[in-house]
Structures are given as structure tokens and as C-alpha cells.
Write a protein that binds this DNA or RNA. Structure first.
Lengths: 340, 340
DNA sequence: TGTTGTCAATAAATCGATTTAGGAAAAGGT
DNA sequence: ACCTTTTCCTAAATCGATTTATTGACAACA
């Protein structure tokens, strides 16, 4: 169907290898006469020849393709990562294949298998973290991959994460300084290392100020709107309501606010809220949210950089864990606690 | 490096073709002894053999891959499309490669070239619509593609779009019936057929009620937050302010609201707003937005269906244009015009 | 005994490029 | 006139699968 290198060779009257060498450009002005080169280029143009990458890939053992496995592209956090990864890919002439796990471990494992069959050269992944054996396998094979936004304690890998412990620590400290003493923690997916670190940061801040950790104030599991809604509803039904909430992930914020408004409470008068944001596409309020905004673009970029490095020099690469700080921005969803 | 079919064949002591035939499963229980089959399967498992798709692709002239070219994955509208396309792809064992054009025509053209080199089997695309020659080329070649959310008047293609004219018509009619007589239209990208149809719907509704079309009330170009912000600011500076706004795309809503709040106006008391939404990840207000919500999931699904059909039967396929209705949902961002 | 048929497996071409080694012809040197 | 060098190009292997045609062995049948 499509015109091949062989076809071009025949038209020009030379051997396919000659055409290949001319087009590769590696032997520039060398070993091929100017006349032949011209003729080849003309013919290529005339027949609109475009090389078959499948064939090149096979021969060169390269696909110029990486995989991106994330929980859900609908989550603007991951969309942002995908975006910036895409930009980096483009620069290096790579493409990427996106797979959504929906936080289902089995899907993740299958996707990895599938992508390996497709001979992707590397993988950026936000792991489900319900199991991890498959990563040890990847490490054994020295298969290039980078964990994004989550990491494993147990073994060394490439990883790019945010400074979750400190990010939340500071935010909670801020709430404490506003005089809040009952601060709720709306939790995301328990299994996620990021969420775990945020919970630790929350506890760490409370501990610093000698405040009791009340397990009733730590609720929720899962990074969904519904999860945030239910958890917040639960926490607002406590006999002793919290006066402030730390919402530990971006999507959850939407559910949390829903629950707050539904309970007839207002922000920040009845309850102060600190959330996670990323860029402007996240929940928009008639007032800006006090929030921890993560450097998503950087996350994608740095992940690609690490991955690319591993791909380029598979033998002499070193695993790196990059920790990126977030920005804490004070909006209008927080205020001093009543009576303080 | 990786273990190949040949390696397996050697281990088992048979010819590669035998291994291939066993693994393909096409010659089930036939022409290969039970003993050999078992041995092959065992060896495959033992050495963790996974077929090289590059090689298969080349031989079979299939990549099981399609392309998705969209303006921006960060826009939840396109993220939603990508999501549902992904789900459909998975069912049919396809993968997809996402490319963001940022509404830059040149990028679109380059991406198409690149994807064709990679021998993707088909393309779902939301075209930039600054030019269109390259699509006529695709049609000539009978290359499978589906336009999503935008279409071309000039020639027949596969396309899945929303019912933009009627969707906006009804929304504007609703505003008129609330007594609004100065209704602003915050426009998205002029070049987009979807936006054009929405503008027509706006004008059509006004015409139906014998209302003058005031060009000052039609502002903006470009589907960005900034665009929406500037356009809205402009319209709010008119000597005779509009009492209602029809915001013609989802991202723009954020900018429009920003401008409204900045001007010290409130919604819906000072100005009623109808926007475009899709699912819950769009701008969240302390009140729900009156909005036209588009069936994004359907859009992705139907686009894949059309594309798959074309891929499966390239010769007997027929171009189809599918028009999907949106849902108009009345929230709290609209109310009766003052004095009516 | 010779023919036919079945079963199990192989040989070799193929997909479309790249690349190493080499070869023929022209140019250059003495 | 002969050897060397350079220039220009070709041959053929290769990447890792799939598939069509074919072969060899053995049993069945007349």
C-alpha cells in the first residue's frame, strides 16, 4: 500500500541501502554523489514517502515510546503531569501511551505487561501501591522507570515526589497559629505513600504544639469526590466538630466543600479549609482557596529527565529520588478560630 | 537481551514456526502433538517470554494503536474524551497516543505526520481548523479518522459532535424567558465550528424573540481562562452592561467568573451566568452553575466506534456525522432579570 | 507392494527498514 | 603502466515475529 524505501530505490535506480544511507543523513556529502542524493530526495518528496517506523523500530530496537501509568487522567493533577511529560517527550522525539489504573492493582500489572510487549523504552508511573513485587522485577531487569508522586520505602528506585510531609506540616502549623485546635484531616487513599506522608505531616505538626491526636478527626480513604464528601460528612457529624479541615488531595476538596455547604456551614466562618490545588483548573470558588499547590509541571518534567537518563545510559545510571517543595498560598478559605 | 521466540524454539528443540503456531492458538489441538505444546508453554512460562510486538506489528501490518490529537489534555473536556477513548481502546486491545496541539495548526500537521510514520491505524482529532488541506489528503488516502467535537462543512468525514446550535439556542431562550434582554456571548475560539454553531444558536434565539443582535455583546476569541477573563471584563465595561452571560466553553467560565467577581458584581444578583460544564471536575462554586453539560463520555465512545468501524472495513465504510444532545441543567447562577 | 492419508514439524519467504563489509570504477601518484 | 586511494554504490545479514508450502514418518488400505 504505502510506498516503501524499496520502491523509492527502484524508481531512482539504486539499491535500497543507498536510499537508506542518504535519508539517514549520517554519511552527509560522503559516499553518495550529489546527483544521486538530489534524485533520491526528489523522489521521496514526489511519492510522499514516509519511513515505516515499525520496521525501523524492529531493526534499531527502539520505539521512541514511553508509558505513563496513572490513576486517572481526569484528575487534573495527573492531566498536568501528562501535559508536561508530553512537552518533554516532544522535545526528544518520544511519544507516550497513557493508561488509567483507577487505582486497581491488577490493571497496573496488566498495563505494565502490555507496555513491555510493545517494547516501550521506559515508564513513568504513579503506582497503586497495593502490591509491589512487580517493581522489584522491573528493577532486577534494570527496566527504566520512574515513580511519580508516590514511592516505595522498601527499595531504591527513581522517583519524583512532592515534599508531602513538610507541605502539610506547614499548612497545619498555619492553622494552629490561627488558633484552631480541632483540625480535621480528610484523608485520600491510605495506601498512597503521598497520603501517608501527609498524614504524618499532620500528626507531626500537632505533636510539635503538644496537641492531642484524635483519631476521630482523621477520616476517609480514596481520592474521589464521593470519598471526600462522605468523609467530610462524617467528620461534621462529630459531637465536637472540627473548626478547620486539611483536605489531603485535590479532587477530594470538591466533595469536602459539597458536604460543608450541604450541612449549611460556610467557609471560612464556620470551618476553615486548606486544600490541595494545582493550577487554575481545580475547584474554583467565589474566593480563592487556601492551598498547597504542587509543582505538577516540574513533576512531569523531572520524571522524564530521570527516565531519559536511565534509558540513555542503562548501565551507569543511578537511582535518584527528587523531592519538590510545594507552594503554600493563603486564600480566603481560612481565618482565625473563633474566640482566639 | 530479551528472550525471543527463537530462543524458546531452541530450548524446546523445535523450529520457531512451531512455537509461533502453538502460541498463536490458531491451530488448536491440530498439527502439533500434545507433548510439544505442553513443553512449549512450560518453556514460555519458565523464561517469561513475551512476544515482541514490534516484530509482530511489522509482519502483520498492525500496530493496535490509534492517535488522539486534542488542543489540551488539561482541559477536562478533552481529558474526559481521552478517558472514555481509553476505556474503549482497552476493550479492543488498542493503545492510544495523545498529542496536544495548543490550537497551533502547525503542530497538528506535524503530529499527523509523526503518527502516520508510526503507522497508527486511525486518528481521533479535534482539529485546530485554521486550515484543512491535510484532511482532504487523509480522505483521499482513505486514512481512518474521526473528528471530535468539531467538524468541517466543506467535506464529508466521520465526526462526533454535540448539538451546539440547539444546546445554546435553548439556553439563551431560557435566559430570555427569565426576562433578560441584554445577554452577552463570551465567545471561545472563533475558528472552531463548535463555537461558531454556538454563536449561531445564540443569534438564532435572539432572532426568534425579535431581539436586536448587538455586536458589542459578542466578545472574545480563544478557549482560555485569560481569554474569558479579558472578554468578560470588556463586556462588563460597556456603558449598558449585560444582565446575563452565555459563556461558550468550559474553561472560559473560570476566567469569566474571575472578571465578574473582580468587578465587584455577584452571580446571579447582578449578572446571570450560563456556562458549559462537564462532570464534576469543572469549576466548582458554592452554588451549582446553570449549565450546558455535554456528553463527553459518549463523545469519546462514539468516536472510537466510528473509527474502529473504518479500520475494520476500510473499503465499505460510510462517513457518519453523529450529533449528541447536551443536558441543560438549571443551577443557581441564573435568575429573573430585575424589573421583570 | 505400492498407494493414499494423516500427523507432526520444518523451511523459507516476508514485513521494511539499517548497517557492515566489500567491490567496481574513476582519479591520483610515481 | 601499475599501484593506491577515493568515490560511489551494492550485497546480504539482521531485527523477531508469522505463514504458506512442503517434507518425512508412519499407519492404513487395497
Amino acid at each position: 500500500m504505502a510506498v516503501t524505501l524499496k520502491d523509492i530505490a527502484k524508481k531512482v535506480g539504486v539499491h535500497p541501502s543507498t536510499v537508506s544511507r542518504v535519508l539517514s543523513g549520517k554519511y552527509d556529502n560522503f559516499n553518495v554523489s550529489e546527483k544521486t542524493r538530489k534524485l533520491i530526495f526528489e523522489t521521496v518528496k514526489k511519492f510522499n514517502y514516509s519511513p515505516n517506523e515499525m520496521a525501523r523500530n524492529l531493526r534499531l530496537q527502539k520505539t521512541q515510546t514511553i508509558g505513563l501509568i496513572i490513576p486517572d487522567i481526569l484528575n487534573p493533577f495527573y492531566a498536568g503531569m501528562a501535559r508536561s511529560l508530553g512537552i518533554e517527550c516532544e522535545k526528544k522525539d518520544y511519544s507516550f501511551i497513557i493508561c488509567n489504573t483507577d487505582e486497581i492493582q491488577e490493571k497496573e500489572i496488566n498495563f505494565i505487561q502490555m507496555l513491555k510487549r510493545r517494547r516501550i523504552e521506559g515508564l513513568v508511573i504513579t503506582p497503586v501501591q497495593d502490591s509491589k513485587d512487580h517493581f522489584e522485577e522491573l528493577i532486577e531487569e534494570n527496566f527504566p522507570f520512574v515513580l511519580a508522586s508516590r514511592y516505595f520505602d522498601d527499595f531504591e528506585t527513581n522517583a519524583v515526589v512532592t515534599d508531602d510531609y513538610n507541605d502539610v506540616f506547614k499548612a497545619v502549623e498555619y492553622l494552629i497559629k490561627l488558633g484552631h485546635s480541632r483540625i480535621g484531616f480528610i484523608r485520600g487513599r491510605k495506601a498512597s505513600s503521598a497520603i501517608q506522608d501527609r498524614e504524618k505531616g499532620y500528626k507531626g505538626a500537632l505533636a510539635k504544639y503538644n496537641m492531642q491526636i484524635d483519631q476521630d478527626l482523621i477520616v476517609g480513604n480514596g481520592c474521589t469526590i464521593e470519598g471526600g464528601y462522605k468523609a467530610t460528612k462524617e467528620i461534621l457529624n462529630l459531637p465536637e466538630k472540627p473548626t478547620a479541615l486539611l483536605v489531603s488531595a485535590n479532587v477530594i476538596v470538591v466533595g469536602a466543600l459539597e458536604a460543608i455547604f450541604e450541612a449549611g456551614l460556610s467557609v471560612p466562618d464556620d470551618v476553615s479549609v486548606v486544600g490541595f490545588t494545582n493550577m487554575k483548573s481545580t475547584p474554583y470558588l467565589s474566593y480563592p482557596l487556601t492551598s498547597i499547590s504542587q509543582p505538577i509541571g516540574q513533576l512531569g518534567k523531572r520524571a522524564f529527565d530521570l527516565l531519559f537518563q536511565h534509558i540513555q545510559s542503562p548501565d551507569e545510571h543511578k537511582y535518584k529520588k527528587i523531592i519538590l517543595p510545594s507552594k503554600f498560598s493563603i486564600g480566603k478559605s481560612t481565618q482565625k478560630a473563633l474566640g482566639s
